[in-house]
């Protein structure tokens, strides 16, 4: 697959270098654009015009397309990864904010935040196949690796809803701290992690018993506790670390996922929101909403190495590996 901008010289380099370098795509909520960052140079190489109020952003499992929640247009846009062209819009239900892609690469679970609904979209047939009533202001979405459980967090109901992906019914509700924002399963599917923005903690659940194993709390000298607001986070594949965006505390916390201790805090841009990680887990990219930039953290050295200016209110971020 060739990048559209590849020059003749670059073409000759194809023999040795990857055809397509790694990229990070960033949705800019108040600019209606996506910024594309070239990872080798850490520069923005392209800005794509998209629909209104772009938020949730992810690639298909084969990286052929990107999916984008254009919230105020009430649609999910499908963008060709190679050509950057918007291929078509998918039905999403009203005001989609975030979503998760099933391992089958075909079903997307969507949070319709104004309607207290989780919609299930079939991207092949291009239609909504199920709508599941959930709590008030559904937000965080996660699907386990086995593809059997989908999670929706409801921000005002303060719950994680456990949805059976076969029956599309809620089979369990777990109360968490105030305003749950994001959820992820560990690689082995044995633990579910949920962040609570106003509650200020990260909740860890056993996926067999639904018992809460831990609530991880954060404490930063000279930062008031009510400014510590966990939003997006990422778990490493080996399940040893979690990186947690702490919102207006302007920090990313590094958490040991065996002991649940907080190991360190990295200073990033203002109102850090979501993040994505490189596939080799050596780099972390955070979206900083208020400062309008992306902080790059070198995870080998465990330090922030660069700030990249993007559009207004960067929200979501997704990583695309080389040669994908």
């Amino acid at each position: 697959m060739l990048a559209r901008t590849a020059s003749a010289i670059a073409l000759s380099a194809l023999m040795t270098a990857p055809a397509v370098a790694q990229e990070v795509w960033v949705s800019n909520e108040r600019d209606n654009t996506i910024s594309i960052i070239d990872v080798p140079t850490l520069e923005v190489i392209e800005t794509i015009e998209v629909g209104a109020r772009p938020r949730g952003l992810m690639f298909s499992h084969d990286y052929k397309v990107a999916y984008l929640c254009a919230s105020d247009d009430s649609t999910i846009q499908v963008i060709d990864t190679a050509t950057r062209e918007i291929l078509h819009n998918l039905p999403s239900g009203e005001n989609p904010e975030t979503f998760a892609l099933h391992p089958d690469n075909r079903h997307i679970y969507i949070s319709n935040e104004d309607d207290n609904i989780t919609s299930v979209l079939d991207v092949v047939d291009r239609r909504i196949v199920a709508q599941i009533p959930v709590g008030v202001e559904p937000e965080g979405k996660a699907i386990n690796h086995a593809g059997t459980i989908a999670i929706t967090t409801s921000e005002t109901t303060n719950m994680a809803h456990w949805i059976d992906t076969t029956t599309h019914e809620i089979f369990q509700n777990s109360l968490v701290g105030s305003r749950p924002r994001h959820a992820e399963f560990t690689t082995d599917d044995k633990r579910l992690v949920v962040s609570a923005e106003i509650g200020g903690g990260l909740h860890v659940f056993d996926t067999e018993t639904f018992e809460e194993l831990a609530e991880i709390r954060f404490e930063i000298p000279d930062v008031h506790p009510h400014d510590i607001q966990p939003v997006g986070f990422r778990l490493t594949d080996d399940m040893t670390r979690a990186y947690v965006a702490l919102g207006p505390a302007n920090r990313v916390a590094v958490v040991d996922m065996q002991t649940y201790e907080v190991l360190d805090y990295h200073l990033v841009g203002r109102r850090v929101w979501h993040m994505t990680m490189s596939d080799d887990e050596t780099m972390l990219f955070t979206t900083n909403g208020v400062s309008g930039d992306v902080t790059v953290i070198d995870l080998t050295r465990q330090e922030p190495v660069k700030t990249i200016k993007v559009g207004r209110f960067p929200w979501g971020a997704a990583y695309r590996p080389a040669d994908s």
Partner: peptide, 10 residues
């Protein structure tokens, strides 16, 4: 209305 939605699950 907000309470009732949560209450429905509880």
């Amino acid at each position: 209305a907000d309470n009732a939605t949560t209450g429905g699950f509880m």
